[in-house]
């Protein structure tokens, strides 16, 4: 089978991400020792990866489909603030806060998706607009309602355990389980169910995809809902975890998620990529940002490493993609 050979493996979209991950692991193991691979060290980067990964995968799917959503940067504080204001400031049941945070995610996602589909304005611009609009709404409403930019929240019981607790009393956030579970679900839907094929087709050639009978508009809207809701979910869980929500923050998720997706082998113009690649890309990113603390380097250098990593990953992914395109003359001989 072609995909089991070494060449076949290298041609997969996640090949670059996997090699990048190995390189980063070796780099930090060499300069920082293996501390960051011990449980406490692992928790530090797994937490970063989990929160980022829950957003990066749906964002990556949008990018595979040829769209982009930068409004996730505002949806994280929006989700956090919603649950904090509803269940903290107004002291209403936590489940109402959770439901409202998630439904705001759905609403913003619907608005993004419908605007992109109906107006044909590039999704970068549409979501840039909603990024600022939502930021304004969060700041304005929070100050109007609570006279503060920071709202406290105290959650007990099953909601705390489900969304904002540490596992086994350790340092690993429960988000890590959500991340792993959601990743498995996404892998199934994207790479095994027929729907995944539609996302790739849309990113490859939207007109042909529509002519082939794929409901491209509906699928685009669903993907926008998914990314906005995932971001609201992460914000909500963080508010429950840290017992407070701030109006600021969350913008770092925009670039961090895009970097994870691109390092993960997704083609910016759409049509190519994989969930496993995004998964690896997210871990790679998290290790670089956290691994620096385990080395003797000044942590101010971590952005440099991320920048170089990004460029290296893109070049490597380009090379692998070219290999994938030009491949098979030899393989055919082997099979025949």
């Amino acid at each position: 089978m072609s995909s089991t050979s070494l060449g076949g493996l290298l041609r997969r979209p996640e090949a670059g991400a996997a090699l990048g991950l190995i390189a980063v692991l070796i780099f930090f193991a060499f300069f920082g020792g293996v501390t960051f691979l011990k449980p406490a060290g692992m928790a530090s980067w797994l937490n970063v990866a989990a929160n980022l990964g829950v957003i990066a995968i749906p964002l990556g799917l949008l990018m595979i489909a040829g769209e982009l959503d930068i409004s996730v940067g505002a949806m994280v504080p929006f989700g956090a603030m919603t649950v904090a204001v509803v269940s903290g400031h107004y002291d209403m049941p936590i489940w109402l806060g959770v439901a409202m945070a998630l439904s705001f995610g759905v609403i913003v996602g619907l608005v993004n998706g419908i605007l992109v589909v109906k107006t044909a304005v590039p999704s970068l611009i549409v979501t840039l607009g909603s990024l600022f609009a939502v930021q304004g709404v969060v700041l304005g409403l929070t100050v109007l309602i609570t006279k503060s930019t920071s709202v406290a929240l105290s959650v007990e019981g099953p909601a705390k355990a489900m969304f904002g607790d540490f596992l086994f009393g350790g340092q690993l956030q429960v988000m890590a389980l959500w991340w792993l579970g959601l990743t498995a679900l996404y892998i199934f839907f994207v790479h095994f169910s027929p729907f995944g094929n539609w996302i790739f087709a849309m990113g490859g050639d939207k007109v042909s995809a529509r002519n082939a009978g794929i409901p491209t508009d509906r699928l685009t809207i669903i993907l926008f809902v998914l990314s906005a809701t995932s971001a609201a979910f992460v914000g909500m869980s963080q508010a429950i975890l840290y017992n407070s929500a701030q109006v600021a923050g969350g913008q770092s998720f925009i670039f961090n998620a895009i970097i994870s997706v691109v390092v993960g082998g997704v083609l910016l113009t759409g049509g190519f990529g994989s969930v496993v690649g995004i998964f690896f890309g997210t871990i790679t990113f998290a290790i670089v940002t956290q691994g620096i603390y385990y080395t003797d380097f000044d942590r101010n250098w971590s952005s440099l490493i991320i920048g170089v990593l990004l460029l290296g990953a893109v070049l490597m992914n380009n090379t692998f993609r070219k290999m994938a395109l030009s491949a098979t003359t030899k393989k055919k001989g082997a099979k025949a």
Partner: peptide, 12 residues
Amino acid sequence: GGTFPLMSIGRS
């Protein structure tokens, strides 16, 4: 051809 360059023959 109106096909999808980065998809496999079977998938496209």
